[in-house]
Structures are given as structure tokens and as C-alpha cells.
Computed example of a mutant assay.
Amino acid sequence: MTSLAVQLAETVKSLGVGSVYGEPVEVEGVTLVPVALVYYGFGGGSDGRDDREGRDAESVSMSGGGGGGVTIPVGAYIKDESGLRFRPNTISLLAVGIPFVWVAGKALARVIRVLKK
């Protein structure tokens, strides 16, 4: 189990900046560097019982683990003769922004309702 944790730590450490800022791409004299939000997590568990406590040798101990991650493309840095600028990915911003605005609106409606009383 310890070697698994060490292997995961090494894998995650090697992801680093390359997983957030992709490799620069040159297109017709313009350099593009993609930018993304990246997060991931891992977990594991067991039933906490020892195999020697009243279970036969053929029984399988209960344990599990898993992991996952999400990447949201935010935009790209563009470098050309006019300089360096950031171009956001509008679709991603809308996909993230619309639920945020909805939740903020619902919270504001509740605050107004409480203040009216």
C-alpha cells in the first residue's frame, strides 16, 4: 500500500505546470499557450477488520480505492507581433458562470425575503 501512495505522489508531482499550461503551439507565426483549471483527487478505504479475527482464509477483505479529475479549459495566451494577451474560452466561462449567477440570485432573493419580515 505504501508503494502505491509513493507512485501516486510521483505521478501527481510530474503533472505540474504541464497539465495546467499546455505545450506552446506555433500557428502561422503566432504562439498559443492553452490554459486550464485542473484538479484531481484520490481516496481509499478498508473495512478495518483483520483477516485473523474469526474469518476464514478464503474470505476476501473489503477495501477499495479510486480517483478522478476534472479539466476546465479557461482560454489561451496568444503572443504575436502586437504583444501578449489572454483570450478566454467563452463557452467554459458561461458553463461555470451560469450556475454561479443562479445560486447568487437565489441567495439574494432569500436575503431580501428575510429583510422584508
Rank of each mutant, 00 (worst) to 15 (best):
K79C: 04
I72N: 09
E10C: 01
V103P: 01
F42H: 08
S14F: 02
G45N: 07
A104L: 13
A95D: 12
T31M: 11
V60P: 00
R52G: 00
R55K: 08
T11R: 12
G48R: 04
G54Y: 02
L93E: 09
S19W: 06
R110Y: 10
E81H: 11
D80A: 02
I91N: 10
G43S: 15
Y39G: 13
D47P: 00
V114H: 01
V27D: 08
G45Q: 01
P24D: 11
E53S: 06
A109N: 11
W102Y: 12
A57W: 02
K13S: 11
K79M: 14
V6F: 02
R87Q: 15
V35S: 06
V103T: 10
L15K: 11
V111E: 09
A107I: 14
P73K: 04
A76Q: 14
T71A: 15
M62N: 11
V33R: 08
E23R: 11
S14E: 12
T2A: 12
A36H: 05
R85T: 10
Y21P: 00
L108H: 07
T31G: 04
G105H: 04
G18R: 07
L93P: 03
L4A: 07
M62T: 14
L115V: 02
Y39F: 15
M1S: 10
S63M: 10
S46R: 10
R85F: 10
T90N: 09
L84Y: 09
P24E: 03
L84F: 11
E26W: 01
I91M: 13
F86T: 13
S63K: 08
T90P: 07
R52T: 12
G68E: 06
G22T: 09
E81M: 08
F100E: 08
S61V: 04
V103I: 15
G45M: 01
V33T: 14
A5E: 08
I91D: 14
G65L: 02
N89A: 13
A95V: 13
L8E: 05
M1P: 02
S92A: 15
V20D: 06
I98D: 00
S46K: 03
K13D: 06
G83M: 06
G54V: 00
K116R: 15
S19C: 01
Y21D: 04
Y40A: 15
L115F: 05
S82T: 14
V17I: 13
R85N: 07
E53W: 00
V74C: 11
E23G: 10
K116I: 01
L37W: 11
V20H: 06
V96G: 03
A107F: 08
S59H: 00
I72F: 13
V38L: 07
P34D: 07
V74L: 15
V74A: 15
G44T: 12
G18W: 03
P73I: 04
A57G: 02
V35L: 08
G44H: 15
V103Y: 11
N89K: 03
G18K: 13
L94P: 01
P99L: 06
G64H: 11
S46H: 10
V12H: 01
G54H: 03
P88D: 03
L32Y: 15
L37C: 03
A107W: 05
S3I: 09
